[in-house]
Nucleic acid binder design. Structure first.
Lengths: 260, 260
DNA sequence: GCTTGACCCTGACGCAGCGTCAGGGCTCCA
DNA sequence: TGGAGCCCTGACGCTGCGTCAGGGTCAAGC
């Protein structure tokens, strides 16, 4: 006859676990000896080993109870379900691991790798760190809203960067935001003119690279707010754009709003 | 400005989760509007998306807090550790899954597949179901004690079964246990003579197939008890073996005890 | 102006599977 | 005879929220 400590050691579990199994009725309470100690026989050892085996495989204790008293067919069925759950869980963890791996580089926290590449390209074109960080935050908002569509949009954005006018615009914005001027900086008007030009041309070409998904205004509202928080002169830019017939600021070079 | 519901929906978490993050200080409490509702800005959206990304990867919330305020080097280090943990966890689950797969067949619950094969061989030799089940339970005890060594011992046991005397002994035992005789069944003496013969020969040949590991008596004590519980006539067999100089019953054909 | 439904608030308990005291008794060995 | 190392019960703690309970608020339609 074994004590609870010997039983637990034999089965490779803790004493506390055995008592827990008693408490929830998974393992029957054995008889006590003269001093009130629990004493276990072989049946308990075998049961406990089976319980440990299933529990180690991640089977919930409530299922284990049912499995141990089930007939072979029901048992096999339960095993199949557990195996399916395990497969799903492994898959989930592997997905997490891939995301975590990308996350190692600072930029890609919560961002797919294509976006990180796009940000690198911006940096290479001479866009300032502050602006790249703003772009990154914007893409985090986009990726959270349309995680599956980012990989469609990024190539178009990368292609746009090949246009010297576009990259020039980004650099010009960088310079403005890096400088300490006020709302009266004349370069703001210059920027608005360029941007309105892009937007007009895109509209004429029927170009809608953020397409129907962009019906949802919220992400763009947030991005506008983000931009204003990053630099208050953006508010002036928004006003200038409105005067030129464009409602939002962040969406201007993505999907044109109907002028008005 | 977003309400808590809008914020949660945007980040893909529940409202309750957001409130929980406030409670543990992971996400700062925002300002309230006139009616006491929480109102969130873009910073909260970005934070929450990052938190969700890390949490979905299984990072404990307590770590997330530290990570979000860590410098890039410490962050990268933390990410590496998380990745290691994920790898270990995946490994563990895959091991579980392999065990679970074996467990689909009734016999192999808590048993390695070689043992299941050994049990099948016993059945094929005409050993009764009851005896095979007894053997199975014995091997569960063995496998729990020396999980790494079972695969060394099983081939020797399989080889022994090739000896017609051994398989004959198993069948004889099967017949006895299947019949309804008492302690005076003369076949018990026959069995004891055969077993003692095996034990003597094994001792002479210096054969110790359970070797030093078997210093630990407990598993064999349990197996003896198991056998007695399965059939009380085993007690008679034990007595007969003792008269022939062998202390235990279940270990007789595994490692010979020093006669005494 | 009033209702209705969908939000929001705080506070509190529940869940799984034990770990970990606290405060006591038993046993065995030197 | 004393101390180490077992055993006992009872109770709280941990994670990451889900889920009431018992309220107030807001926007829309009547």
């Amino acid at each position: 006859m074994l004590t609870i400590g010997q039983l637990a050691a034999y089965a490779g579990v803790t004493v506390r676990a055995v008592r827990h199994y008693h408490q929830i009725g998974l393992l029957p309470e054995p008889d006590r000896d003269a001093s009130g100690y629990r004493r276990y026989g072989t049946a308990a050892v075998l049961s406990l080993i089976k319980i440990r085996t299933l529990a180690a495989a991640g089977v919930p204790l409530s299922h284990i109870r049912r499995m141990l008293e089930a007939d072979p067919a029901a048992f096999a069925e339960a095993v199949r379900k557990i195996d399916d759950d395990l497969r799903d869980e492994i898959e989930r963890l592997e997905t997490s691991r891939r995301q975590i791996a990308q996350l190692a580089a600072g930029d890609s926290l919560a961002l797919p790798p294509e976006v990180a590449h796009y940000l690198d390209r911006l940096r290479a074109l001479g866009v300032s760190d502050v602006m790249v960080q703003g772009e990154r935050d914007g893409w985090i908002l986009i990726a959270a809203r349309w995680p599956d569509r980012v990989h469609e949009w990024i190539p178009a954005k990368l292609a746009e960067l090949e246009d010297p006018q576009v990259s020039g615009l980004y650099r010009l914005l960088s310079e403005i935001f890096d400088s300490d001027t006020g709302d009266d900086d004349p370069r703001l008007v210059e920027v608005a003119d360029i941007m309105a030009g892009f937007a007009d041309r895109a509209l004429a070409a029927g170009q809608t690279d953020f397409d129907e998904a962009a019906q949802d205004d919220l992400p763009f509202d947030l991005m506008d707010a983000l931009a204003v928080e990053a630099d208050p002169r953006v508010r002036r830019l928004q006003a200038l754009m409105r005067k030129r017939g464009w409602a939002r600021w962040t969406r201007f070079d993505r999907v044109p709003e109907k002028p008005g």
